[in-house]
Design a protein around this nucleic acid. Structure first.
Lengths: 222, 222, 222, 222
DNA sequence: AATGAATGAGGATTCATTCAT
DNA sequence: TATGAATGAATCCTCATTCAT
C-alpha cells in the first residue's frame, strides 16, 4: 500500500522506505540483481527514479537495506522461536529443522545473501556498511548466547562461531541449490545428479553436524 | 612462456589456451571480475581481443575454464596427498589442515569459486556447463571414496555429501573472510570484530566438525 | 534553434525530437548511413548519446522517423501544389516536372528512400513500422485521388498504382544517379557514359511515360 | 561439385571461382547480406576463408562478381529469347511478360540488385567497378537495339533509355515487394494492404506502360 | 519531497581482412 | 594455391546517477 503524495512526516517516510524495499525484494526474485534496473523498481513502487535516491544512496545501498530488513526480521523471528524452546533430548535436530525450514521459505533473503559480499558490499559508504554489520554483530551476540543455552555441551563462546559457520553454509548451499536454467538442465543428467543439492535438507543436516562436531570438540580437546 | 606466433599444432593451441587462462586468473585477483575487461586480459597475454574469442565463447566461459583448470589441478593434488596418508589416529585433523592450508594458498581459485554461481554460470552454453560439472562430478566421486576410506566410521555414501558440504563452507567462508576495503575498515571496530573470519582456521575447524558430525551421525542414527 | 535544457513540456519534447531528426538528416548526407554513428549525431545536436535513445528506440527507428518526417512534409507540399492546378492541356508534363524538381532538391529524402527497405525496416518494432506505413498509405490514398482528378482518362483506382510505380522509379533512379566516388570515375569513360543517369530528367520522363501508358491502357484494354 | 585440391589449371580456377559465387548467391537468399559472413560462405564451399580472398579482393567484390554473373546470364537468356520473337501485334505485352516472369524466378539476382548501389559499389576498386559496368553497358547497347527492332514506333536511341528505366523499376519494385518480417506483418492489415506489391504483375504492367509511353512520345513530340 | 529528462562512461563482441606456414 | 590463426577496429546500447524544475 504505497504512501500517497509527499511523505512529510517521519512515519510516512519510513513507510515509503519500506514500500521501496518491498518492491526491490519482490523484483529481485523475478529478474535477478544484474537484470533489475532502478527504473523497474521505481515503476513498481509508482515512484520516480530520482525519488529512490532520496532514500538510498545507490542501488547497492538499497539492496543492502533490503537485506538488513529481511535478515533482521528473520533472525528475530528465529531467535524468538528458539528462546521459547526448552531443552530437549533432540534439541539439536529441532533447531536445525527450524532454521532450515524458515530460511527455505525466504527466497528473497537467500538471493540477497548470495550477492551481499560480491555485489552489495562493493559500492557503499562506511556508514551504510557499519549499520549493516552492527545489526549483524548484535544478532550474532544474542544468537550465540541462545545457542549456548539451548545446546548443552557447547563450549563458551562457541555459539557465535557456530552461527558464523551456519551462515557460511547457508550462503554456499544456496548457491549450489539455485542453479541457472542452463545448469539446471545439466543437473538433470544421471551422471551429474550427484551435484544436485536440496537446500533445506542439506542445511538441516549440515547444522546438525556442525553442532555435534562442536559438542564433540569439547571432549576431543579435553 | 607464451606460445610464439600462430598456434597451429594442437599442442601449441593448448599452450596458448593455458597462457590466456593464466593471465585471466592473475588479473582477476588484481582487479576483480567486474572491473576486469577482456581488453585487459588480452593485453596481458599480448594477444588481440578477438583472439580470446577464438578460444572461449564469452568472458564467462573463459573464467569458467580458468576455474575448471584451477579446481581440477588443486583437487587432484589434494586427492593425491590424501591417498598417500595412511589411517591415523588424528586423521581428521590432518585432512582438514591439508585442505584448509592448500586452499588458502590459492586466492585465484577462491575468487573464482565466489563468482561461479552468480556470474560464470549465467551466460554459458550447455556444453560448457556440462564439461565443468562433469569434472566436478568425477572429482566428487573419487574424492568421496577416498574420504570414506580415510575416515573410519563414515557411513557409505557420506563421503560425497561431506565433500559437498565442505565445498559450500569454502564458498561461504571465503566471502566472509574477503571483505571489500570499506567493509574491512568496518571490521576493525571493536564491536564488529566478532564478524571477522580467518579463512584457513575457520575452514579447518568447520571441516573437523563436519567430519565428526558425520561420524557421530552413524551412532546417533543407530 | 535547439531546445534549451530539459524538455519538460510536450511541445519542447517535440521540438527536441525534431532537432535530433534534423541533425540526423544533415549528417546522413555528409557521411552516409553506415559511416554515421549515433555518437556523431548526438554531438551535432549537443546532446548525449543516451538522450537519443530517450526519443528513438534504435538507430534504424531514428532514421525511419526522419524519413517519415521528410516524406510526409514533401508529400503534403506536393499534393497541395497539385491540388491547386487546374486541368490543362499539358497537365501531365507539369505534374511530372513538379515532382521531379521538388524531389531533386531533397537529397536527404532521397538518401533515406534508398536505405529504407534494406536497412531501416530491418530492425524496428511493429508499431514503428505501422506508423510509417500508415502515413504512407494515407498519402497514397489522398494522392491517388488527386491524380485521378488531375489526369483525365485515368481509370478508377489507377491513381494509386501510378503513385506506387513512381515511388519505385524514384528509388531505382536515385540509386543509379548517385554513384559512389569510384563508380562515378568509371562513369566518366566514354564507353560507360550511357549508364549515366540524370535523376531529375529521367524521373520526369519516366513519370510522363507512366502516365501516358496508364492513360493509353484504358484504350488498349477497351 | 567443388573442385578438389589445388586449382592449378586456369580451367580449374574458373570452376572454383564459380563454385564460390554459387555458394555466395545461395547463402545470400537465406541469410541476407549483412548477416552473411565470409566464414559462412567459405564453409559452404568447403574452402578456407583466406582462399576466398585469392579469388576476390573483398566481400563486396565477391558479391558484385556474383551479380555480374547472374545478371549477364539472365540478360543473355532474355535477349536471346527476345531476338527470336518476330514482330507481333501484342509484342509489348509478350516482352513485358517475358522479362517479368524470368526475373521473378531469380530471387538471388533480385537480392543482389537491391544492394548493388548501396553496398556492393561502395568498397571496390576501379577495375572491379569498370568490369561490371562494361558488362552492363554492352548489354544495354545490345538490348537497346533489340528493343528498337522489336517495338515499332520507338524513337532511335530510346531502346537504351527504356531499358534503364526498366532497370530502375526492377530495383524499386523489388524493394517494395520484399518486406522484412515485421513489415510483412504490417502489410497484412486491411488499411495497409494498398502498399502491397506483387513484383511480377507490377513489373509487367510498368514495362507495358513505359513502352507505350515511349511510343506515344514520338507522336506527342512531333 | 518528487520528478524524470539528461547524462556519458563503459565493454563485450563481431568479422572482414591479413599473413605466416 | 590453400590454410585458418590472428588481428583490432569499430559501435550500439544500457543504466546508474544527477539535477533543474
Amino acid at each position: 500500500m504505497p504512501v500517497k503524495q509527499r511523505a512529510r512526516k517521519d512515519e510516512d517516510k519510513q513507510a515509503r522506505r519500506r514500500s521501496i524495499l518491498d518492491a526491490a525484494g519482490r523484483m529481485l526474485r523475478e529478474r535477478g540483481y544484474a537484470d533489475l534496473t532502478m527504473a523497474e523498481v521505481a515503476r513498481h513502487c509508482r515512484l520516480a527514479k530520482g525519488t529512490l535516491y532520496l532514500y538510498f544512496s545507490s542501488k547497492e545501498a538499497m539492496f543492502l537495506a533490503a537485506l538488513e530488513q529481511e535478515l533482521s526480521t528473520w533472525f528475530d523471528g528465529l531467535l524468538e522461536g528458539l528462546a521459547e524452546m526448552r531443552p530437549d533430548r533432540d534439541e539439536t535436530r529441532r533447531i536445525a529443522e527450524t532454521i532450515a525450514t524458515s530460511l527455505a521459505s525466504q527466497p528473497t533473503l537467500l538471493d540477497l545473501l548470495t550477492i551481499v559480499h560480491n555485489v552489495l558490499e562493493q559500492n557503499i559508504e562506511f556508514d551504510t556498511a557499519l549499520s549493516f554489520k552492527q545489526m549483524l554483530a548484535q544478532r550474532l551476540e544474542f544468537g550465540g548466547a541462545i545457542f549456548e543455552r539451548a545446546l548443552p555441551g557447547l563450549p563458551r563462546g562457541e555459539g557465535q562461531r557456530l552461527l558464523l559457520r551456519i551462515y557460511a553454509a547457508v550462503v554456499g548451499l544456496r548457491q549450489m541449490s539455485d542453479p541457472s536454467p542452463v545448469v539446471a538442465k545439466v543437473l538433470e543428467r544421471p551422471d551429474i545428479r550427484c551435484l544436485r543439492v536440496d537446500f533445506q535438507t542439506e542445511l538441516r543436516e549440515t547444522i546438525i553436524d556442525l553442532v555435534r562436531g562442536a559438542q564433540a570438540r569439547r571432549v576431543a580437546d579435553a
